[in-house]
Design a binder for these strands. Structure first.
Ligand SMILES: O=c1ccn([C@H]2C[C@H](O)[C@@H](COP(=O)(O)OP(=O)(O)OP(=O)(O)O)O2)c(=O)[nH]1
Ligand SMILES: [Mg+2]
Length: 618
DNA sequence: GGTCAGCAACG
DNA sequence: CGTTGC
DNA sequence: GACC
């Protein structure tokens, strides 16, 4: 019953023109059909109303006022209705049948011009209805005195293409190696306490501290003001051939603002540049719900990752893991290596593998390194046993062990390994959500029997909304701050008596948080043995425990690394500030932030935008 | 050339 | 302490 | 293996 208001923070950053200013493919001068200009003058004079029925919006981009006025007059002259651009919104073209665009304006600039969500939506949705044409269509028509075919000047298709590209760019922008520079402020402990003093509900604090931070994206207001000026001042290009390189000024504007890095301010709170923050995936939402469009890449790379992991190459495997996550979240199927751009966590080595996969369908490294010779096969096989990892797997394989059957007789297994071996196949199986819910119900029932008012949340991949789960992770606490105390032992006892729990893997009772890691089975015919993880925590640690137990593991590690950067530590117990470290070693633990009973409070303390569980699936 | 999360159980 | 797991 |  923890309530966390849903604030979906999908602010869309103005697609920043980081890509090379691609030459206007549709260079009007090259493509325009060459039509003899004979006899244009008298036809024009006849005043044929060949634009009858056309309502024509004029995009001010690269068109000075004088030019817009001139065009408007001529449109009227030939029976059309000119539509001026008003209130800085594309909505002023709502009724348009046509929109004309200056001949040299790159398609990219048109898309970038539509920077607000409303304008983007308008542009996207209007493509089937409105004909976007180069203004050459008008001038040709004027000179010829007849209405030229729009098709020859249409840029709808190019716009559609560019919109898709911009969406990808926008995504890239968020995940790029280095990005933008604005600041977010991190509240100090003292500030927070003041907040707490004034509060009378958790939600309020969360709302309160929103204003100073830029919620992880470029402030659209900032950018647009720069553009309006750009727009008004731009008188340069007027007639059909001055090939002025416009645009690209925004970039300079932005980089001149770079200065703000890490600034410490008084009264304990300090600011952190967004560019730093954006390097941590915990500051970014994972693309929840959307499908992995890059399985053709992630599947072979996963294989490579697993090989490295089973060979004990922990950090190399982690590097692959991050790269895979980046590819999973990429909004577009990658067909060519260039599509990857400078996606964070994909460096030269992995990129070369991607290239190879795209070209050959496979990667030599995958084939070579993952040669399924019998030793490697055995290592991989052993690593899938709960309680066995690279060290043990390699040791056994080197001792010429090859099969699961040999293990029980030829090596000494510890408790967890015995159980892991016993349930080898069941544990490899993933659990459907419906079954997770049945298990949750069983544990919940037993717990509430022992103590009412408990707060019980199923976390892990289940809480992140995954369709299947590797295990069941249940978090239990009590809002009164003390009634969780005598629960752990009795709960396990109860669940054992009902024969729901079948094996224990490890039990930790020594700290404030109690943890059970074991095996359970629903009382049904053919039901499988499932791994079950239960933690019972004091309510003062509820927020940190919930955050931790919801994961994902990568998300946690990123958030903890970010905390580290802020001279904090984040664990399943607490978020501490003013941690002193020398080199790697912690000299002082610092002090914990008090009352972190919600996840939101933790994000807030760290100056991070709140992320829904589903958006933490990195 | 250093860092890559932070903690806890098991043996 | 080394290994494994969450 | 990526990034600082
Ligand atoms: O190395 C780890 C492993 C797990 N966790 C946290 C995050 C994770 O979400 C939660 C539960 O762990 P589990 O292994 O069950 O991961 P999961 O996210 O639930 O995935 P799965 O579907 O495999 O259970 O514990 C970590 O912080 N670090
Ligand atoms: Mg889990």
């Amino acid at each position: 019953m923890y309530k966390e208001r849903k604030v979906r923070n999908r602010v869309i950053a103005a697609a920043e023109a980081k890509s090379p200013p691609l030459p206007p493919v549709s260079g009007s001068s090259t493509i325009t059909p060459t039509i003899r200009k004979s006899g244009s003058i008298e036809e024009k004079k006849t005043g044929k109303k060949f634009l009858e029925g056309a309502t024509i919006g004029i995009l001010p981009l690269n068109n000075c006022n004088a030019r817009v006025t001139l065009l408007s007059e001529r449109i009227t002259e030939f029976g059309g209705v000119p539509l001026p651009y008003r209130k800085n919104t594309m909505m002023s073209f709502d009724k348009a049948t046509h929109i004309v665009v200056n001949f040299e304006t790159p398609i990219k600039d048109i898309v970038t011009f539509c920077r607000t969500d409303a304008d983007k939506a308008f542009l996207r949705d209007s493509l089937p209805k409105i004909k976007y044409v180069r203004c050459k269509w008008l001038s040709e028509s004027f000179t010829k005195g007849v209405r030229m075919s729009e098709d020859d000047y249409s840029i709808n298709a190019l716009l559609q293409e560019e919109i898709t590209r911009a969406e990808v760019q926008e995504h890239l922008h968020k995940y790029r190696r280095s990005t933008s520079f604005r600041d977010a402020t991190v509240p100090s402990n003292s500030q927070r306490e003041t907040n707490l003093a004034k509060k009378d509900g958790e939600a309020k604090i969360a709302d309160k501290s929103q204003p100073p931070k830029s919620s992880g994206t470029v402030s659209p207001a900032d950018v647009s003001s720069g553009w309006k000026r750009n727009l008004n001042e731009d008188d340069s290009s007027d007639y059909e051939d001055s090939s002025g390189e416009v645009s690209d000024e925004e970039e300079d504007l932005d980089s001149s603002r770079e200065k703000e890095t890490l600034v410490r301010s008084g009264s304990g709170s300090f600011t952190v540049s967004d560019s730093l923050k954006e390097k941590y995936i915990c500051a970014q939402a994972s693309s929840s719900g959307t499908k992995n469009l890059n399985e053709h890449l992630t599947v072979p790379l996963e294989k490579l990752m697993n090989t490295h992991k089973s060979q004990g190459q922990e950090f190399r495997a982690m590097a692959y893991g991050k790269a895979i996550s980046a590819l999973r979240n990429f909004p577009k199927k990658i067909q060519r290596a260039e599509d990857v751009g400078s996606l964070r966590n994909i460096g030269g080595s992995i990129l070369s593998k991607i290239t190879e996969i795209l070209e050959n369908g496979t990667c030599q490294k995958v084939d070579n390194l993952c040669v399924d010779d019998e030793v490697n096969k055995a290592i991989a096989l052993f690593c899938n046993i709960h309680g066995v990892s690279s060290k043990t797997a390699i040791k056994w394989a080197s001792a010429k062990l090859r099969t699961l059957e040999e293990l029980s007789t030829k090596v000494t297994l510890n408790r967890a390994q015995v159980i892991g071996l016993k349930h080898y196949h069941d544990f490899l199986d993933r659990i459907p959500r419906s079954e997770v819910e049945e298990i949750e119900k069983t544990v919940k029932g037993a717990a509430l029997d022992l103590q009412k008012g408990l707060e019980i949340v199923t976390c892990g991949s289940y809480r992140r909304g995954k369709p299947t789960c590797g295990d069941v992770d249940i978090l239990i606490s009590h809002p009164d701050g003390k009634s969780h105390r005598n629960l752990f032992g009795p709960l396990l006892e109860k669940l054992r008596t009902s024969e729901f729990l079948t094996d224990d893997l490890s039990i930790s009772e020594e700290s404030s948080q109690k943890k059970y890691l074991g095996v359970c089975r629903l009382p049904k015919e053919d039901s499988k043995f499932r791994r079950l993880d239960i933690i019972v925590v004091p309510y003062c640690e509820f927020g940190c425990a919930l955050l931790y137990f919801t994961g994902s593991a990568y998300f946690n590690r990123s958030m903890r690394a970010y905390a580290h950067k802020l001279s904090m530590t984040l664990s399943h117990h607490s978020l501490n500030r003013n941690v002193v470290r020398m080199k790697k070693v912690k000299i002082s633990d610092g002090e914990p932030f008090p009352n972190l009973t919600t996840e939101k409070a933790i994000f807030e303390c760290m100056g991070l935008p709140y992320r829904e569980p589903a958006d933490r699936d990195h």
